[in-house]
Design a protein around this nucleic acid. Structure first.
Lengths: 195, 195
DNA sequence: AGGTAACTTGAGCGATCGCTCAAGGTGGCA
DNA sequence: TGCCACCTTGAGCGATCGCTCAAGTTACCT
């Protein structure tokens, strides 16, 4: 062996492990296995289990944002763009995801109310995500796709809530066609502005 | 000390601990503390941490069912009954809850996809809950509160999804008035049959 | 009071937890 | 080639994990 470990690939694999199994149920042994790194290197590279989790959320969020930006650019309207995000890039609709659930939703429900560096990172990323949704709804209003009086913050809460609700349905045993139906109903609501 | 430990109160306290902190993040030490029992008695009474968790879910589910039956009996219609459940007994609206989230929703998202005795118990309880919702919607159809063609199973999925979505919003930092607004919007949808 | 069945107690088991660090290896430069 | 800066390695730290069980205590019956 030689060469620096591929820190980027290691983080990617750690993210998938945390995403699928959560923070508390992922052990350092698991992380060593999926990253191919030994404890010393892991700690030199990432600091601690909690910091690695925070980095994993950051990476997840960056990836989702990049994919969302990509599909929304191609869309014919802002609401279409949001619908395409739901139907094409969100983990509920994305075969690349290790489990059919948004990492952030899973994390928000795993963590209790107690403060931690993980929780504050989570809130920061969720709020950044809200800003993106709100901007898209605002653009939709300005483009006349939504009535002038529509409230972007409220629409964003409904979109978040709608997605998280389907994440729950996906994590109980529901059939994948059932999930697909809920997803396309939500996308249709967004497209028609009736969210 | 003497007398049997109060197994019922102990289970209640264990349930609240698991509910607030999840399975993996609750240690035997925590359970000893909240139940006031020593490890030997805990294991004699409940068998294992996993079995105690399964019993906690059962107890949660029984409690929620009992409260729901109580408010639904008093309601003036079936849809009003469901709305009253949402606004009065669901943990999102219930100050007795240790955290503002349904225990089952939190558990479904904490557990991965892997099978376990906990997961099968969870699915059993969730399906029993579905049957109750479906029966309420069916009664609403027969009472003419909903159109003849309405699908109770689908309405139930939407109700589950709606509640779980708000649970996510409640577990991120959202203000409690915001949560209350989402809850009353969902209740209004149910009351009007537009869920 | 003596016997017995049932319960409580807590020391401590082996395993695993998150994490550290001294030792060994590697690549680049003079 | 010899040196140095950097990286990897893995044994193993102290703590905690879920759990067991022999010993002690209590309640009840005769």
């Amino acid at each position: 062996m030689s060469m620096n470990h591929d820190k980027d690939a290691a983080l990617n694999n750690a993210m998938r492990q945390f995403w699928a199994h959560g923070f508390a149920s992922t052990s350092l042994k698991d992380l060593e296995r999926v990253t191919g790194m030994h404890p010393g290197s892991l700690y030199a590279a990432f600091g601690s289990k909690a910091k690695l989790f925070a980095l994993s959320m950051q990476r997840y969020s960056d990836w989702l944002n990049a994919e969302r930006a990509r599909v929304m650019e191609q869309a014919s309207s802002h609401l279409d763009g949001l619908a395409a995000f739901i139907e094409q890039v969100h983990p509920l609709s994305n075969a690349q995801a290790p489990i059919r659930t948004c990492f952030m939703v899973k994390t928000a429900l795993e963590l209790g109310a107690e403060d931690s560096e993980i929780r504050s990172q989570m809130i920061k990323l969720l709020e950044a995500n809200d800003r993106v949704f709100e901007a898209a709804f605002q653009s939709a209003i300005e483009a006349g796709e939504l009535p002038k009086g529509a409230d972007p913050a409220k629409l964003t809460r409904h979109l978040n809530s709608g997605l998280a609700g389907i994440c729950f349905c996906a994590m109980r045993a529901e059939a994948s066609e059932t999930i697909a139906e809920l997803v396309s109903e939500l996308a249709a609501k967004v497209r028609s502005g009736a969210i």
